[in-house]
Amino acid sequence: MEIFFQQLANGLTVGSIYALIALGYTMVYGILKLINFAHGDLAVLGAFIGLTVITSLTGAGAAPSHWVVILAFVVAVLVVAIAGVLLELTAYRPLRHAHRLSAVVSALGASMLLENGIMLIWSPQTLTFPEGILPSTNYVIGGVVLNSTQILIVAISFLLMLALYLYVNKTRFGTAIRASAIDQDAARLMGINVNRVIVSVFILGPALGAIGGLFIGIYYRQAVFDMGWIYGLNAFIAAIIGGIGNIPGAMLGGLLLGLFNSLAGGYISSTWQEAITFALLILILLVRPTGILGERVAEKV
């Protein structure tokens, strides 16, 4: 039972990170019907930028101060959001009316460009994150070790997701985002500037992704230039499990996948984790082809 709760805590942490990153996939898909394959790499960019801010403002051996950590998150979010907008303007917008395959190729190209860019700017090697970026006290509750870093990651992720949910569902611009995802021309007839909505999605998604990426670095205490591939894939699978295009679905899918991965890793075998992830994906798509919260896609296309 202790193992179960231990894996639950780990799974919740990883799951909330997947969920943060999955939101970017799902929001872009919701509006452009496009998989932004570069999204995982944007998240990784966030991790590297955050690391650079922290190491360059912290003396060797010292623990980074609160302010440095906050600054690292702010800078990572800003830079990655700008990168997201540039990505939309250069890689996707010119192909808005082109064949769908062109946009996919462009997305894969952008992903490679980002990955190699990160490798050239930083390092082809794995970089280590310093200790103590987030407070790391262990609490033992009934034999289960809960770390305050885990608690913070889960709490901040939930707060961010709640904020996004309220923004998209309760504000005027959020309603415009949802309307544009349903029917772009009808949205234009309402006076909505759909291009502005699309840009906003390429700000929000990458911003959340940057935080997710930085959380990965902090949690595992390392980052490597090509890890966007595996984390991006997991977050993407989370988005599909929840129902791609559906925002609460991405949150749910991320948490489920994180929990499932972690429990399967703890009980079955961690070397089989990826196979188990795909098995879960296939199983869910067999039972519900549109994902857990997805709508009937066939009607939309």
């Binding site: 949802r178 009808a186 909505i192």
Partner: peptide, 28 residues
């Protein structure tokens, strides 16, 4: 303003949300 062919209401938004979107260019 246009009521388009086929109506094109936002099916997964409420009636009230649809109406408020119609006034997107105006103050609340």
């Amino acid at each position: 303003a246009q009521s388009p062919e086929g109506r094109r209401v936002f099916g997964t938004l409420t009636v009230e949300e649809n109406l408020m979107l119609g006034a997107y260019t105006r103050s609340r």
